[in-house]
Nucleic acid binder design. Sequence first.
DNA 1: TCACTGACGGGGC
DNA 2: CGCCCCGCCAGTG
Length: 105
Amino acid sequence: MNEFYERVYAIVRKIPRGKVSTYGDIAEMVGSKGSARMVGYAMNHAHGLSPAVPAHRVVNRNGVLTGKHHFGMPTLMQQLLENEGHVILHDQIQDFEKVRWKPRK
DNA sequence: TCACTGACGGGGC
DNA sequence: CGCCCCGCCAGTG
């Protein structure tokens, strides 16, 4: 597996329960700013790994669950997030800025 | 080898 | 505020 993927997975695994992050932020954190699409692509291949990669905690910059169709059931991603205390309305995380994970600073 | 495709994001109009 | 275009770069046919 690529170093790029490994780094993306390492970051995503650090997202604490109850928090979420965005593709763009993660791309920047792995040192490949602007490559948010690659992060999404990496998530697409992140299933079945161990330790597990909480891909459901990664949404787009608007807090919208754009990747829900890749969890088998279209409702799974939303349910996982709700289990962690989030409120989702119309595929969008409510109070997104409040639960957005921002390491350091 | 070339062309196209994305779980995206930002800028221009 | 909405729509369109372009850069990002690994995979795939």
